[in-house]
Write a protein that binds this DNA or RNA. Structure first.
Length: 466
RNA sequence: GGCGCGGUAGCCAAGUGGUAAGGCAAAGGUCUGCAAAACCUUUAUUCGUCGGUUCGAUCCCGACCCGCGCCUCCA
């Protein structure tokens, strides 16, 4: 089954393939580095990571650009409050973001591009928009005039053809002649960071960086543009207006948006006390891959209710898969091949692939894996699992993990080395042979206290890290 | 008010015009020196409410109720 994705533009699920040379040119909105990213941000970034992996699973190559917004009002304000330069201030949160992504096992996009390294490109683009009468200037600030772009509203499916003023006016500190016009360029204010450019001094508005950097690195028409659903309007709508006014071509063929995340059934907010950064949750003892599993297990177009019960449930689910893998690797099976089981493995692989290709239906993909695991475990218990079935079983897990990436435990500092564990196990086995169960249990408990779990099986003792 | 998403078992959650995947939790059982792991059984006559279409609807249509998002540079 070919990959199908929901396109916000058409509001339909459409078959996807890149427009040229089998390479997906994708742009996704990255973080504004004014603070640590929160768990809601990471829901979207995890979705993007799953998307990347599914695109590759379909044989496509990737050229993926993600921006780092390292200049905006909050950054300027916070940096000033801490008496730091913009660069000093954003370096801290940029690095924190990269560290968080690494912990969550999010692949690095092919290009990570900071806005502040493209100021001149933005100024040049604004100059071109001005040359084609898409802008006006008030007090040194440049605005995009949406009346000059007939397609405005096509992404968010809003009709702006009528009288668009009237709803909210004067929400910005800057002067605009139409409520929905937006700033491309902001004139410098007293004491604020600004750049000297061909269009004068100032700093870029929010939307222009994405248009400029996307076109610079990926060309005038992207295959995919993705982000959180709250970016549909105005951010992505404005990107379309700028980009298409600039190039006269469709800005992106596909637009993908991840739904919101809730916490314990409520919207996440600082005032409710349910606002969490990734660090907060890891600090409570949840491993990053558990968080990753929970974020990835709910299909991206459905709002995700993030709960601590859900995290515990995710951890147990991962254990089940890890236990199965350990069993495959440590148990001994009779020679031969169980054909029926081999067919089930192939079917699971196919179902997994098809589910993901159905607009990234991760929940259904997981079901395919768990069904197979149950069947295989049953066969093992019944003595019907054969040595030659191991490879396909490991193959199912490998395929699963190439997308979900949760089977490898996060390394813990200060744990026993493998050799040490093995020597304890030898001592315990000797104690068991002598029917000194008290000593055997004591050793097992001591190891457990150090995060090592022992299991006695017919094939011998096996162990794993908690 | 406009636009969009959603309401399925205790929790998370898939799904189809023909009678409800999967995970977690709970209870009982098998196995085991004890554990652990694993397996088996049980847990939605029912899919927000009310109408309609249909031989038949959780799935299609309409109305209503509830939750969430955007419409204020918030993923």
């Amino acid at each position: 089954m070919a990959l199908r994705l929901h396109n916000t533009l058409s509001q339909q699920v459409e078959e996807f393939s890149p427009s040229r040379d089998n390479t997906v040119r994708m742009y996704t909105c990255g973080p504004t580095v004014y603070d640590f990213a929160h768990i809601g941000n990471f829901r979207t970034f995890t979705f993007v990571d799953i998307l990347r992996k599914c695109l590759r699973a379909n044989g496509f190559k990737l050229d993926h650009v993600m921006n780092i917004t390292d200049v905006d009002d909050k950054i300027i304000r916070n940096a000033a409050a801490q008496h730091k330069s913009l660069a000093e201030y954003t370096a801290v949160y940029t690095q924190a973001f990269l560290d968080d992504c690494a912990n969550l096992r999010l692949e690095r996009p092919e290009r990570l591009v900071p806005a502040t390294e493209h100021i001149d490109d933005m100024a040049a683009a604004i100059a071109r928009l001005s040359a084609t009468s898409h802008t006006y200037t008030t007090d040194g600030s440049v605005y995009f005039k949406i009346a000059t772009f007939p397609g405005y509203g096509k992404l968010s499916h809003n009709d702006f053809s009528g009288n668009i003023a009237g709803a909210r006016v004067d929400v910005d500190e800057y002067e605009k002649s139409d409520a929905r016009d937006f700033a491309l360029w902001k004139a410098p204010k007293e004491g604020e960071t600004f750049w000297e450019t061909a269009i004068g001094p100032g700093r870029p508005g929010w939307h222009i960086e994405c248009s400029v950097m996307a076109i610079k690195y990926l060309g005038e028409t992207l295959d995919i543009h993705a982000g959180g659903i709250d970016l549909v309007f105005p951010h992505h709508e404005n990107e379309i207006a700028q980009s298409e006014s600039l190039t006269g071509k469709p800005f992106s063929r596909f637009w993908l948006h991840a739904e919101f995340l809730m916490v314990e059934g409520q919207k996440m907010s600082k005032s409710l006390g349910n606002y969490y950064t990734l660090r907060d949750i890891v600090g409570r003892g949840y491993h990053p891959e558990v968080i990753r599993y929970l974020l990835a297990s709910v299909p991206y177009r459905k709002s995700l209710n993030f709960t601590f019960d859900g995290l515990k449930s995710a951890a147990t689910a991962i254990d089940r898969l890890r236990n199965f893998k350990l069993r495959l690797e440590t148990d001994r099976y009779p020679e031969g091949l169980n054909e029926q089981l081999e067919a089930r493995a192939a079917a699971a692989l196919q179902a997994f692939h098809d589910s993901l290709n159905d607009d990234l239906n991760t929940a259904e993909a997981l079901a395919a894996v768990f069904e197979y695991v149950r069947d295989a475990n049953s066969a093992m218990d019944a003595g019907e699992f054969r040595a030659s079935n191991v490879a396909a079983a490991l193959g199912v897990l490998a395929r699963f993990d190439s997308i979900f990436d949760v089977l490898r435990p996060t390394a813990q500092a200060g744990q026993l080395a493998d050799a040490q564990v093995d020597s304890f196990i030898e001592e315990r086995t000797a104690a068991k042979k002598a029917r000194n169960f008290a000593r055997a249990d004591q050793i097992r408990q001591e190891l457990l206290d150090q995060g090592i779990i022992l299991e006695d099986t017919k094939a011998g003792v096996r162990w794993k890290r908690k």
